[in-house]
Each structure stands twice: as C-alpha cells, then as structure tokens.
Simulated assay, not measured.
Amino acid sequence: MKRRTLLTVAASLAAVLGAAVPVHAADPLKVAFVYIGPVGDAGWTYAHEQGRLAMEKALAGKVKSTYVENVPEGADSERVIRKLAADGNKLIFTTSFGYMNATEKVAKAFPNVVFQHATGFKSGKNMGVYESRMYEGAYLLGVVAGKMTKSNTLGMVASFPVPEVIRNINAFTLGAQSVNPAIRMKVLWVNSWYDPAKERQAAETLIAQGADVLTQNTDSPATLQAAQEKGKYAFGWDSDMQRFAPKAHLTASTNHWGDFYTKTAQAVMAGTWKTGETRGGLQEGMVRMSPLNPVVPADAARLFEEKKAALASGKMRPFQGPLKDQSGAIKVPAGAELPLKDLLSMNWYVQGVEGKMPK
C-alpha cells in the first residue's frame, strides 16, 4: 500500500536536531526521492517529480538530487531507502504511504540523515511527515460532479482502503451532496496505485452501473480516457490530465510540492530543520485546481469558485457537521468539525456511499 518560512541558506550544514552532519560547505546537499510509480504516470509520481525539478531550479548549484522510480511498498522499499542513505544522501523523501515503516526503520539506522515521509503518521527525531489536504480538492470535484450528473450516480476508482483515500471518497461525496442531495456514490477498488488496465476496467464497470461522472484516487489517466470513450465526464487527479481526454476532463485537483521541497532542503542546509507534520491545502498552494472545462454551466462554475474561496480562506471545511456515516449515525454534530486525529485515521464511509469497505 501506499496513498504534507522560507529559511536562509547557511554557509555550512550545522546540526540536525543537535547532531552535526559532516558535509563540506562547498558540497551541494545530496537529496533523494523514492517514487511508487514511473515519473511519467501523469499523476502522483509525476507531481512529485515536478516538485523535485522545481527544487533543483530554485536551489541551482546548492543541491544535487536523484530519484528511484517504480519502488514497490514493502521490503524492496527498505532496501532502496537504505542504499540511498548509505550513498551519502542527507535528505530523503519517501513519497508513498506504504513506505512508512521502512522509512522509520532506516531513519533509526541513519540518525544524521533527514527523512520526510509522505501521507503517513509516524515521525521521529530525524523523520518528518508531509501531505497535501487533497480532500479539499476532492470536495470541489464533487461540487462539479453533483451539478453535472444526470443519473445522480457517481463513481470512484479507488486504490487502497487507507485513510488518505477514504477521506477523498467521503469529501467528494459530501461536495456532490452539497449541491445535489440525491447523489449516490459507487466505489470500485483496484488494489493498486498505478495499473492503467485495472483502472480502465473499473471505470467501465462503474459506467455500466449507471455512473456518469467519475473520479479516481489512482495515478494514470485511464479512468478519464474510458469516460471520454463512453461519452461521460471525469476529473484529473494529482496533476492536470486534460490533454489525455479533453472532452471528459472537467477539472483536476493537483498537487504542488516544489515549495515544500525547496524550503525543506534550505532548512537542512541551514541546520534549522526540525521534525514535525506538514499538511498544506488550497490556502498554502499545495493543492490547486486546474481550469474548468467550458462545458461546466455558469451556475456550477460560480458555485465552484465560491466554495474554493471559502475552503482556501478557512471559512469552510469539508468535514463539518452535521455528518453521518453509512448507517445514519451521527459522526460529527452540527456546529462541530471532525478532529484531526479522526480525520487521519478515517475508516468509515459517509452516508450516500454504497457498498462495504474492504477489510
């Protein structure tokens, strides 16, 4: 399985949480990235690669970065992460949920290396956590879907039943319900972050079940392409996928990692990096929405922009009460908001999502 200040660059790398790191002042900081998929996947890994390139451009001559792509979660990831640390990389980003335990293990063995893990919940003295609040973008996709559907049936091609993905399913559903209470949400799990054939098959199945607007938490444009071939609508995910299916692509929720990668590298070089959790969304620019397809009606576009502004300003949150689960039980009362700890461990569907969650 898988799937969040600007600091002055010091002349030399001093200490990471009190431990001196012996890097010569003239040496560029060696930074490594571990990717779950290929850099050309057009989705999650592609977005991280764009972030790496942005960091290199911003810190030209001060950093030297590398990456390893298509690294499976599990034992293989530990081997890759350990080798990158042994090779002298002083900052390592591991970019998939399923790398969490391997990152934690290697971080303990290399206390003078800084590790940043994406989408997880474990941290340590030299291991931080980061992710984007992609559920904000998912909520906005749902707003558009709720206005565009004719069948009132939406579909999600989902990867793995981890909190990150469940949050996005629920946020998308809540966004759609905010403009169309009749919405029904269908979910098909493909048990992969990147498998175009499985993603396409799932998309076609959802369409056969009546879904006329699709979303995804997978990394290829196969869902969009299937939707376009069937005359339906869908959304890009992690990056703008408009070029793959221009008629079907309504908008995309995109991740932008460049600023975070740049600032983290600067902090490591300055000796000011500290462990912690970073979660950025619309307000911070880590999540951005791509342009709306002109087929989206003016009233739907206006609602989209209004809700985007409300989310970006913090005036609105996707998981505000009253909020019910599938059974109709109140999970969040009116006037309250789902606590962060419950959001990060979410393992239930909101009302309106059909089917059982995989164990």
Rank of each mutant, 00 (worst) to 15 (best):
T218V: 14
Q209D: 13
P196Q: 06
A176W: 00
N191R: 06
M185V: 06
A203G: 13
R200C: 00
K198V: 02
T215G: 11
A222K: 03
G175D: 05
P221D: 06
L206H: 03
A182E: 13
D195L: 00
W189Q: 12
A182M: 10
K198S: 14
Q201K: 14
P181W: 07
W193R: 08
Q201E: 14
Y233A: 09
P181C: 09
G210S: 05
D212P: 11
D195C: 06
V213F: 11
W193V: 04
T205A: 15
A203S: 11
A222Y: 10
A227P: 06
K232T: 00
L214N: 09
L206A: 05
E229Q: 15
E204V: 15
Q201C: 02
A222R: 11
N191Q: 12
T218C: 10
L188N: 13
L206C: 02
K230W: 02
A176K: 01
P221E: 08
T223D: 04
V187P: 07
N217G: 08
D219F: 06
Q209P: 01
I207V: 08
K198G: 00
D195V: 02
Y233T: 01
Q225N: 10
D212A: 05
Q209S: 11
N191I: 00
N217T: 15
T223A: 10
G210I: 13
P196V: 02
Q225A: 03
P181V: 00
S178Y: 09
N217Q: 07
D219K: 04
D212H: 03
Q177N: 06
R184V: 03
A211Q: 06
K186I: 00
A222H: 05
V179N: 01
P221V: 05
L174Y: 01
V179R: 13
E204I: 11
V190C: 11
E204H: 07
A211V: 05
W193L: 08
T218I: 06
Q216V: 07
I183N: 02
L206S: 01
P196A: 11
G175P: 06
T205P: 00
A227N: 10
